[in-house]
Each structure stands twice: as structure tokens, then as C-alpha cells.
Design a protein around this nucleic acid. Structure first.
Lengths: 208, 208
DNA sequence: GTCTATATTCAGATAGAC
DNA sequence: GTCTATCTGAATATAGAC
């Protein structure tokens, strides 16, 4: 009978080994890409043999799907946190800054998971892409709504296509993960310049 | 003796089979990534068996290097063409537009070669990356010079970092290859909005 | 110049011992 | 839960016939 009380903990701790495997998988997938990453290397990084990995995950594809799901959730959650910091009735400019800050912070501070998402866009099996599509779509829809808000408030110029604008911003943000090295410019610096240039342009007022 | 005269043509035609192989390799590499692409599939697309490919290329790495070299040269040449269309003493704004037009046209109109470069950035063997580094660096330097011109002319605001600005523009352009589908917005539309937003921002004048 | 055949290596995945 | 051992398939690359 005593045993039952002691056994409560594992429920809270969840599956520790699984967590480690997922973290290591994200690391290897992000650096080498899906195909080049070998299960042997992932298992080894987690301190086990390749065969043992199958006790926790049914296949390489399933492992990748779970890594990518966590990645998207992490980015989405980080953006949500930034939005929550705003006052109610925030204007488009503040929302744009919060979206840029959230997305970029997630990408640059936890690159293992997020780089996996960004780099392996079109190079994973179709089954993996299909499994991820709903969550990707849901996050993308939040960005679409942001741009619609900008149009509705009359902040975005009439001759600027808001969907193209969204793709510009996301491209600029995602590409940062390609060149960014920690130790260079701070994330805050990037966030502020990105917001500033997208809102106001790089051109000095009064020139031309 | 007559034979010699007839044999002049092959010199002009170059190595036709090699060209076909390179084109097919670019196609397969761009769609599947370096690791997933098999020489069997590339050879098959060129109408031959995998083993025969080795008569033309020493290894998969060598084949990839040549595809990537052509890719960079193509982008660089397309930008140069756009610059040549300008009058002498062109202002920064026109140069920026020409760079954007050249880079984007190359990427979106000939996606086989160029997507290979963009997608396989960090996921090719280090020997391949090293072989390509000088040409990549040279092209990047042209963009650096463009931004320096913008600063020197006083067009780019003092509080905008010109290197960050370069990375913003290139990120936005390169990411286009991820989502662009022919049949949607025209390349000209993209070029004009990109130039406009980077110079002037998306915000309506007089708002706030 | 392309073929067939094959050497070699390594990947994902499974089975059963412990 | 992790191990060892192994199956199976596929990939790069080579050798030699044609």
C-alpha cells in the first residue's frame, strides 16, 4: 500500500528519457538535416544504442514529427507571451513589434528545435509534412490576422499588399537563423531595426 | 584527312551529356536536398545508369560543387545584367531595385539551380562548403558595396545598420523561393513592393 | 561512353536476451 | 528499458565487358 504513494512522482516528471531523446534529436536534425541525421548519432548523444530508441519512438519519421510539433508550439507560445505583455487595444505597430520579437526570440534563443522547422521545410517525407500542416497553418493564420488588423486600422498603405508584406517579414525573420551567431548583435537590436525598417523604410526623410 | 574538318563541331558544342547531367542534378538536388538525392535518380533523369555518371563526374560531391558554382554564377550574372541597364551615375535607389530584380529573377525563373544553393546552405559536406566559399563571398561583397553606397550617398538613415539591412533584404528575397509558385503574383510585382517597402516602409504617411 | 555486376558501407528497423 | 545481433534495403563507387 505504501508503494502507491511513492509512485505518484513519475506522473509529474513525465518521461525523462523521451525528453532527452527529443532534445538531442532536435540538435542533430537542425545541424545535419533530416536525411543526414542518423538514429545512431541521436541515440548516442542521449547515451544509448540505436536499437533502444525504438522503445520510445516507433520510427525516425515519428521522432521528426514530434520535434517539429514542439518547435512550432514553442514559436507560437513565445509570440503569445509577447502579445500578452501589451495593453488591451494595442495598435498595429505594437502588435507587429511583439510578433517580430516573439518569433525572433524563439528562433534565435532555442535554435535546435526551431532551425529544424525552418531548414527542413521541403525536405522531409510527405507524411511528415502532412502531419505538421495543420499546426503550421494555424500559426500562419495568426500572422495573416495581424496584417488584416494593420489594413483595418489604416496603418498599412493601400498600395502595399498585406500578404506579400507578411511573407517579407517572415522571410527576413526566418533567414536570420541562417546567419545569426550569438555574440554578435543582440536580439533586441534586430527586433527594433526590423520593426523600424518595415514600418518606416530605410530612407532618410526628405531625401529625393 | 577529311575527318579532321568534320571533327571541329564537338569543340563548339562542348560536352552535351555533361550539361544534361548537371541540369538534372540541379533539379533533383533542389527538390530533395543533397543527401536524399540519389545518383541513380539523377542518372535516370538523364537517360542513363548510375555507374555511367562516373565517366563524367568523379563523385557526388564534385557534381554538387559544379551545380552550386553555376548557381552562384547565374545569380551574379543576372544581377550584373540589371546593373548594366542603368544609366551611369545611378542613385542608390535604382541600384537597390536592380539588385533586387536581378537576384529575384534568377531565383524564381530558374529555380532548379538557385534553390539548390539556397536550400542546401548548411547541409552539404564541409568540403563542398569550402569549395564554394570564395564565390559566395565575392557575390556577397557586391551587396555590401551596394549598402555602403547607400550610406555614402546619405540615402540610408544614420540609425539603420547597413549590414543588418543587407541581411534583411537578402533574407526576404531568398525566402521567396520557399513559398513562390509561378502563376501567382508576377516577379515584377514582388520587385516593386520589396523595393518600395524597404525604402519607404509599409506605413501610411501622416499616421501617428 | 554506357552497360552490367558487384564491392562496400551504412542506414532504419526488428527480435530476443538480460 | 537497454542491450546485442541481425535482417533488409539502398547508396556511393569501382571493374571490366561491350
Amino acid at each position: 500500500m505504501d508503494a502507491k504513494i511513492i509512485k505518484l512522482k513519475p506522473i509529474l516528471k513525465k518521461d525523462k528519457t523521451r525528453e532527452v531523446l527529443l532534445d538531442k534529436a532536435a540538435q542533430v536534425f537542425s545541424r545535419q538535416g533530416y536525411q543526414s541525421a542518423s538514429l545512431k548519432e541521436i541515440a548516442s548523444a542521449a547515451g544509448m544504442k540505436a536499437g533502444s530508441l525504438y522503445y520510445h519512438f516507433a520510427s525516425k519519421e515519428v521522432l521528426m514529427i514530434e520535434v517539429l510539433e514542439r518547435s512550432i508550439k514553442f514559436i507560437s507560445d513565445t509570440v503569445a507571451e509577447e502579445i500578452e505583455k501589451l495593453d488591451d487595444d494595442y495598435p498595429f505597430e505594437d502588435a507587429l513589434n511583439a510578433y517580430i520579437r516573439g518569433h525572433l526570440t524563439a528562433i534565435l534563443k532555442s535554435p535546435d528545435y526551431t532551425t529544424t522547422t525552418i531548414r527542413n521545410n521541403g525536405q522531409v517525407p510527405k507524411s511528415v509534412q502532412a502531419a505538421l500542416h495543420p499546426k503550421r497553418e494555424h500559426y500562419e493564420q495568426q500572422w495573416r490576422n495581424l496584417m488584416i488588423q494593420g489594413k483595418a486600422e489604416g496603418v498599412i498603405r493601400a498600395d502595399v499588399d498585406e500578404q506579400l508584406l507578411r511573407l517579407m517579414v517572415l522571410g527576413c525573420l526566418n533567414w536570420s537563423s541562417v546567419w545569426y551567431k550569438s555574440g554578435g548583435a543582440s536580439i533586441d537590436t534586430l527586433v527594433d531595426q526590423y520593426t523600424d525598417v518595415f514600418l518606416n523604410g530605410c530612407r532618410k526623410q526628405g531625401v529625393k
